[in-house]
Simulated assay, not measured.
Amino acid sequence: MEKKKLNNFNMPVYMPSTHEVKTIIMRSKLFIINQIQLSESNWDPYDDDLEGEVVLYPAQSGLNVARSLRPVLRRLFTTYFGESVQDVLFLRIASNVSKYLDKRKGKHNVIALSLARTYGDGVL
Rank of each mutant, 00 (worst) to 15 (best):
K29G: 06
L30F: 06
L30Y: 09
I32V: 14
I32C: 13
I33V: 04
I33C: 00
I33D: 02
N34V: 02
N34Y: 02
Q35R: 10
I36V: 11
I36Y: 00
I36M: 01
Q37G: 02
S39M: 07
E40K: 08
S41E: 13
N42Y: 02
N42L: 04
W43Q: 06
W43N: 07
D44R: 06
D44Y: 04
D44W: 05
P45F: 09
P45C: 03
P45W: 06
Y46T: 08
D47H: 07
D48Q: 11
D49G: 04
G52Q: 12
G52V: 04
V55T: 14
V55E: 12
Y57R: 08
P58W: 13
A59N: 10
Q60G: 05
S61Q: 11
G62E: 02
L63P: 00
N64F: 08
N64W: 06
V65T: 02
R67W: 12
S68L: 08
L69Q: 11
L69C: 03
R70G: 12
P71H: 15
V72Q: 10
V72A: 14
L73M: 13
R74Y: 15
R75Y: 12
R75E: 10
L76N: 09
F77T: 12
T78Q: 12
T78F: 06
F81Q: 04
E83Q: 11
E83P: 14
E83R: 13
S84Y: 03
V85S: 06
Q86Y: 04
Q86P: 05
Q86K: 11
D87Q: 14
V88I: 03
V88C: 08
L89G: 13
L91H: 10
L91W: 02
L91K: 13
R92D: 10
I93M: 06
V97F: 00
S98E: 14
S98T: 05
K99M: 05
Y100R: 12
D102W: 10
K103H: 00
R104C: 01
K105G: 03
K105F: 03
K105I: 02
G106V: 14
G106L: 14
